Amino acid sequence: MFAAYAADFDADRPLNALRLGERPRPEAREHWAVVRVAAASLNHHDLWTLRGVGLRREALPMILGCDAAGVDEDGNEVVVHSVIGATGHGVGPDERRSLLSEHYQGTLAEYVAVPRWNLLPKPPELTFAEAACLPTAWLTAYRMLFSRAAVRPGDSVLVQGAGGGVATSAVILGAAAGLRMLVTSRDPAKRERALALGAEVALAPDERPPHRVDAVLETVGAATWRHSVRALRPGGTLVISGATSGQALPESELNRVFFLELRVVGSTMGDRDELAGLLNFCRSKGVRPLIDSTLPLDRADEALARMERGELFGKLVLTV
């Protein structure tokens, strides 16, 4: 079968480690299913894999991709939950959780094998491309907003770095849930697009918000940490799920954290029940993932290059 996979690691030029070509088709095993992939979306996790982060060299070659929607062996349209081993379903009870493309081959291929427990029915209202956007970036945003920040309608939320998959999905989800969404971006065009998605305020980096917010969603890390902490009201919550700009903080703002009794909460992905909730939310609210563009799988190198350059607003989807 045709696939996009990591054949090597290159920390500086990750696309040098990418290969497009034939890989063995997965075989079904007990309690697992083989899904014919209709669409798969890209995540920064794919670039980190090509750089050699979180993957052992002996696991190479590794098919990239965490997210997919497709058709199972019985003809059912399904969405793939990308976390394997969180509960023991289909794997050993003591196996540590991992994302597809870390321990098991990923979704940027014609077929992917996953435990049957990881399959959820695709809502008929969603296209395969839309459904393929949900299991990582959108699920991350959903968990950050509703499980970890625990915000309520009317609360204000600042999202750092408008444009990426998590940021755009957080704005759309938050606006649909009645939250007052604020965003930041270096790019004026991205700020304008975020406003069109439902953001109430769009700020340049380090620009002071018009009011203190109830929660901040942080995925950028070192570059925006100080701004995130200073944007919070007393007792507010900072939810962090990534650090794309690095982890070394120039100033930790610990005095502000303890004096204002701020909450700093980590968040990683989401569980199967939360993905089911996200699918129902999209169906009931008419919410649709924002897709930057859709390309065929054999142009995965072009898509990953665009992601590396940061030329996205929304999700990049590969169709099979």
Rank of each mutant, 00 (worst) to 15 (best):
A196H: 14
A199T: 09
V201Y: 03
V201F: 09
A202T: 05
A204S: 12
P205T: 05
P205Y: 12
R208V: 06
P209Y: 11
P209C: 08
H211S: 07
R212I: 07
V213D: 14
V213F: 15
A215G: 15
V216G: 15
T219P: 02
T219S: 15
V220Q: 12
A223N: 12
A223T: 13
T224R: 02
W225Q: 09
R226W: 03
H227A: 07
V229H: 06
V229E: 03
A231I: 07
A231M: 14
P234C: 06
G235K: 07
L238Q: 01
I240C: 12
I240S: 15
I240F: 09
G242D: 07
A243D: 05
T244Q: 10
S245P: 03
G246I: 14
A248F: 04
A248R: 15
L249C: 09
S252M: 13
E253R: 11
F259H: 03
L260V: 00
E261P: 04
L262N: 06
L262W: 03
R263E: 05
R263K: 09
V265Y: 09
G266I: 13
S267M: 04
G270Q: 12
G270V: 08
R272D: 04
L275Q: 04
A276C: 06
A276H: 02
G277D: 07
L278M: 11
L279M: 09
L279D: 02
S284T: 13
S284Q: 14
K285I: 08
K285V: 04
K285C: 15
K285F: 13
R288G: 05
P289R: 11
P289Q: 10
I291G: 00
D292L: 05
T294N: 10
T294V: 15
L295D: 13
L297N: 04
D298R: 14
A300V: 08
E302K: 07
L304F: 06
L304V: 05
R306Y: 01
E308C: 01
E311V: 11
L312P: 00
F313K: 01
G314Y: 01
